Simulated scan of single mutants.
Amino acid sequence: MINIGLTGWGDHDSLYEGVKQSSGKLEIYAGHFPTVEVDASFYAVQPLRNMEKWTRETPDAFRFVVKAYQGITGHERGEIPFETRDEMFQAFIDSVKPMKEAGKLAMVLCQFPPWFDCKKENVQYLRVCREYLKDLPCALEFRHQSWYSEEFRSQTLSFIDKENWIHSICDEPQAGARSIPLVPDPAGSEEVLFRFHGRNEAGWTKPAKGDEWREVRYLYDYTNNELEELAGHVKSVSSKVKKTYVLFNNNSGGHAAGNAKQMIDILGLDYRGLAPRQLDLFD
């Protein structure tokens, strides 16, 4: 099973053109795609009312990939409002309960920052994270090239398998140590996550002020040839696992939704159980 979607549901204007938004964007989004990444959970542990609302607004077959809170993965772009590590992890675990209990939690995504390189203390911290999150399916994504260096690649993939992580396979600009190669290997898991960040090398490495980094870094429109190439990797890996999730993160220029639909067409997917589509005046 291959589920294709986007990171977030708020930034994809092409999905909402000509539609009366009497209901929320998520309900409309769920008429196009069977899965989505929740990004708000990275910036703040979400209150139960939000998670319950999003769970309620989506069809039974819909699945969420919930991005782990920034304090868990060491980004810390702002004040961390928890006094202890135990309190922080427990608050996050409690927040995803509505999705888990409804059977709509595909996985938690732990994306570590570019400065989180392959060294002993970081390997130990990954074990700590997995122990805290042991009752949740968790994907592991790196941003530092050292994890997939010739020296450590096989050990990294073996570690992902032994510690019961889901491998997050990324397509992103190849821009030195602070980027990772595409490694289409399920690493022993029965599930896998692909995240496509675009290939804007200049934007990936360019220093940006404030929130500009997001607008610059993920500005990219995949060509049909590139999508065909990526679809080949998705198809190959999906033949080795039970479930495959594919998320397009090239949101800056509004290209993610179109690229995701192209990928659906290339793979010949036909999703059932989506939310009813709202029709515009002339449909």
Rank of each mutant, 00 (worst) to 15 (best):
K67F: 05
L105D: 02
P81Q: 06
P207D: 11
N249A: 07
R49M: 08
G198T: 04
F42V: 08
F196I: 12
M51A: 14
K240L: 15
E141K: 11
M107S: 03
G232A: 10
G31W: 02
A260S: 13
K261F: 11
K235C: 07
L227D: 10
Q155Y: 09
P81L: 03
D283T: 12
E37M: 13
G8M: 10
S236R: 14
N250A: 12
G103R: 09
S22E: 14
V65E: 01
F142D: 05
L227T: 14
E172F: 03
S168V: 13
S189V: 09
R85N: 00
D86V: 08
H75I: 10
K119A: 07
Y220A: 06
Q46Y: 00
I4Q: 01
D185H: 14
Q262V: 02
K261Q: 15
A61D: 13
E228M: 14
Q262T: 11
Q111G: 06
Q174Y: 00
L269P: 02
Q155F: 12
T73F: 01
E151A: 15
S252D: 10
T84D: 02
C170N: 05
P276Y: 02
E141A: 12
A187T: 05
G5F: 01
T244D: 09
F142Q: 13
K240Y: 01
T84K: 08
R214C: 01
L230S: 05
I160Q: 03
Q124F: 00
N200C: 10
F64A: 08
P181M: 06
F64T: 07
P181V: 05
W147N: 06
L48F: 03
G198Y: 08
K104L: 09
